[in-house]
Design a protein around this nucleic acid. Sequence first.
DNA 1: TATGTTTTTTTACGCGCGTAAAATTTAAAT
DNA 2: ATTTAAATTTTACGCGCGTAAAAAAACATA
Lengths: 342, 342
Amino acid sequence: MAERKIRNMEEFAEISGISRPTLSKYFNDPDSVRTSTRTKIEQALEQYDFRPNIYAMNQNRKMTKTIGVVVPYLADPFFAEIARNLERQCLDAGYSPILFSSHGEQKLENDILDSLRSQKPAGVLFGPLGRASDRGAVEKFCREVPTVFFDANIEGVGEAFIGSDNFQSVPLIVDYLCRSGEPPCFFEMQPVNPNANKRRKAFKQAMDRLGHEPVVIRADGDGWGFEEVGYKEGLKLIEKRQFPSSTVLCSNDRLAIGLLAACFEKGLRVGLGSGCAMRVAGHDDHPFSRFTCPPLTTVAQDYRAITSKSVETLFQLIESGRDGAEKSETLFEGKLVMRESA
Amino acid sequence: MAERKIRNMEEFAEISGISRPTLSKYFNDPDSVRTSTRTKIEQALEQYDFRPNIYAMNQNRKMTKTIGVVVPYLADPFFAEIARNLERQCLDAGYSPILFSSHGEQKLENDILDSLRSQKPAGVLFGPLGRASDRGAVEKFCREVPTVFFDANIEGVGEAFIGSDNFQSVPLIVDYLCRSGEPPCFFEMQPVNPNANKRRKAFKQAMDRLGHEPVVIRADGDGWGFEEVGYKEGLKLIEKRQFPSSTVLCSNDRLAIGLLAACFEKGLRVGLGSGCAMRVAGHDDHPFSRFTCPPLTTVAQDYRAITSKSVETLFQLIESGRDGAEKSETLFEGKLVMRESA
DNA sequence: TATGTTTTTTTACGCGCGTAAAATTTAAAT
DNA sequence: ATTTAAATTTTACGCGCGTAAAAAAACATA
């Protein structure tokens, strides 16, 4: 290594004995040059460690090798995990992911889209805020940049959506709860995205099908501090004895975590055994749900599948060009995760 | 808005009536032009929405407006929170933060530094892996890019370090635990960074000072799956009745969360009241610690202060240039957070 | 060896903007 | 009104690389 400092591709062409245009081709796609020249380049690369100036590279390329990854709320480990998987898969495919979090704020989401647009990314993997998203801004963005939505859909926008099949996953756990004890009520908060709405609907359908009255409790509070809402509203409801059932299916795990804290504070034992006053279940299999007290029964989203499919879909889109095909939607099934809370 | 599509600064100069070099100045620093011209520009900007090509901008600028933010493990909400604060403060100061997570892997951390270097950032806010960091790679990086370390220090590298004063925070909670019940033992895992070591030392010192035997339990397991380690090792220790004290001070909250799960599973009631078999305390005031069962007694890191100071320090560094000054180190005090677990 | 095909080299231009220098205008101060 | 300082315009060049076109070289095939 070392020897002379290489300042640009011109100099690297000199010392490697390969012409600059060929080098340019190589750095754009290593497989686009003959193997013999490729090895020559890579040998020189080991000796002199040179990296082309990314700014000069991207300036005239119609398409960069950048992939934008946008999640609605990064402080949620669920999205952190998803982001991590998406990042890695982009990296493996030779792209450069850049990660953004909207932190639950519309303004931030719009700013991200703006700054993203000016980076001319090859494509974007977009987990939108949902209800709080600025549809107009998102539409405009998607017209310019190939976009795959995950987690939450925005109808009619973007090239594809990959998510979970709430109409499969929710009945799954409703069935389980009904056959193992008192039929559940549904505990939700102000819906932040379409998933929340679908889960409520799916709950109602499933309960109807089983011949039970579907009772939904809507907690006050909004934003992305789900645990807080679950806790505070849980406390209130317990105090007023307003839970219509001792079995509570929460719209998501984070809400359930908050509710568990409330139950604990109120001395209500949660679980299935005798001596338990309540059962609490969630949805998503949040990374921390294994460590709640008691461990949370929930239905796991297949986020491996979701991330893989999202990335694959985007790459196909990028390689084949946007051929005006209809938006594709892929939903993965959830798996019941039985733990001690219900 | 709209009318004609502006393709570059040249065209924007035409329609705005401002010369291109002045526009260039404006986009680099809006305050560097006369207010009258500034308003002219901003009026035109509202009409025609034009954004200079970032790649062309950064190509020849010696210094970009980019700030790298690197955290060791983003799936940890503690770091997610820190990252969020850092991001926002960079944004507010007119810089563009780009976020990276090393996901606990040295290779990834090195890759990040590599890709970061090629982006010529104005500076980097760096939360290193710690023990797993590649000192040589980090040193090399810091020679090229102004770097402020936070959370974990790497001695002798970078321009500044901002973190918590473990030798204040740990005695704080040790004192509390000792005066409110049985003196604690210290539960740690393979240290991932200097903080872990310092906390152990601080524990020993504090116990010595109070005239108690300082007993440390080292859990097997490494990596960043702290809850898992705390849970599994906790189970083992409880089964074998090897906890030397019924009061356990954990090296951090995530470990404590795992231990709480183990206690719950083993039917050990945690808390201070009568009828409680154990007391468990943590360190950091992790965002989820409020929602554990029971809520976790811990000592809060002042991450507001840490992030603010980190960003301020970096900006000073950037503006004043690196004048070979000695590395500065700032430590903030922790605050005792008494909840029900101890 | 001759032929056709693929790859590389040579040459040359352009991208969009930074920036330096000199000329000019504007604002502030006397 | 005059002087002085500061900001802006004009002009011009350069950054590092993408990329197109034509010429040359390398390879494949018969």
